[in-house]
Amino acid sequence: MNNPWVLDNWHLMMRLLLSVLLGGVIGFERERKNHAAGLRTHTLVSLGSCLIMILSIYGFSEFVGQPGVQRDPARLAAQAITGIGFLGAGTILFTGKAITGLTTAASLWVVMAIGLAVGAGFYVPAAATSLLTLFVLWGLNILEKRYVNNLKEHLFTVTLDGNMPVTERIEELLRQKEAKLLKIRLDELERDGDGAARIRLLMNVRLSREEQLLSVAEQIRKLEGVRSVAVE
């Protein structure tokens, strides 16, 4: 590779294959956890970014030295950085009070950067970034669950007397227990034989301490107007 603007076929294939390998490793981690963007998505993002970088640097070598021609190898790469935002936004979901997919969107952005780095020939930084990304996605996830937010989401199904205003008292009870109400839904059930209205309340709740589960369920059951409580 005496000419810095020319890439032979061997190095071209090596860079493309390396981008597939590094992107696929991160995608495999996302696939194992059943995220929207998994193995194939991350691999394709890395591969495509690598090809864009190669094209940006070496694809227009015949124009080097021509009058009035100015080379900017980073131009196509800059457009890739902007374009990945649309794909990342597609993995972010807003459901009720919960937002999911931010980590997967960030991993797609990092994989894009890894592909660009491989395409530019920065093999060591690309490989190091892949290892660090795996550490963040896998290692820090374990630390988060164990020490930071040892929280588990539970589904509370509460049957209420339709004539009793109970929901505000349930919300106040959850606040006292430092529980986070993620999602709530109210369904009107068929009336009983006595004609009394019944309402089913579905709540996705995240507790600050797992041992509070039975205590919270019992206290909700004791509220006036609550017919039954079920927890999953």
Rank of each mutant, 00 (worst) to 15 (best):
F63E: 01
L160C: 05
A117G: 10
G59W: 03
P165N: 05
S49R: 09
T133K: 07
V69Q: 09
G96A: 13
F156G: 01
G85P: 05
V226E: 13
I184W: 14
F60D: 02
N141I: 08
K33F: 12
L131D: 05
P125S: 05
I52R: 04
V111K: 06
Q219L: 13
N141F: 09
A117P: 03
T43C: 14
G23N: 07
R169Y: 04
K152Y: 10
F156R: 00
W10G: 11
C50G: 03
A36I: 08
E144D: 11
L102F: 10
K177C: 11
I81Q: 13
M14S: 13
I170H: 06
E178T: 13
K180C: 01
G193L: 12
T133D: 05
Q212P: 02
G27I: 02
Y58H: 02
V205F: 10
L137K: 15
G24E: 05
A217E: 01
G121V: 00
G115F: 09
H35T: 14
Q79T: 07
H154R: 13
L155C: 02
L189S: 09
S49Q: 03
L87C: 04
E210Y: 11
T103Y: 13
R75I: 01
E190F: 07
L213A: 10
T82I: 11
H154Q: 03
W5I: 09
K152V: 09
R146H: 09
M14W: 15
M1I: 06
F86P: 00
E232T: 12
L143W: 13
G96I: 11
S215A: 13
I99F: 10
S19T: 10
R206W: 00
K145P: 02
Q70T: 12
R198T: 01
T82N: 08
L207M: 02
L134V: 10
G195I: 01
L132Q: 00
T103E: 00
E218D: 12
E171C: 11
Q79G: 02
L47W: 08
E211D: 06
R185T: 12
N3A: 06
L173H: 06
P4I: 09
I81P: 08
L21Q: 03
G90S: 10
R32N: 09
A36T: 11
L16I: 14
I99W: 08
L108W: 02
M13F: 11
Q219I: 03
L201W: 12
G96F: 00
N149C: 09
T43S: 15
W109M: 01
G27F: 00
F135R: 04
F94P: 01
H42M: 02
L116G: 11
K222C: 05
A89T: 06
V148H: 07
E178R: 15
K97L: 10
S49F: 13
A113G: 07
Q66W: 07
G139S: 11
E31I: 00
W109G: 06
L55K: 01
V110T: 12
G193N: 14
V231A: 08
E178G: 01
A89L: 00
L16P: 05
P67M: 03
I54M: 13
V216N: 14
L223I: 12
G90E: 07
E144A: 07
L140E: 00
W138S: 12
E62D: 10
A179L: 02
A113W: 08
L134F: 14
D194V: 06
R175D: 15
R146N: 14
A196K: 14
V205S: 08
E171A: 12
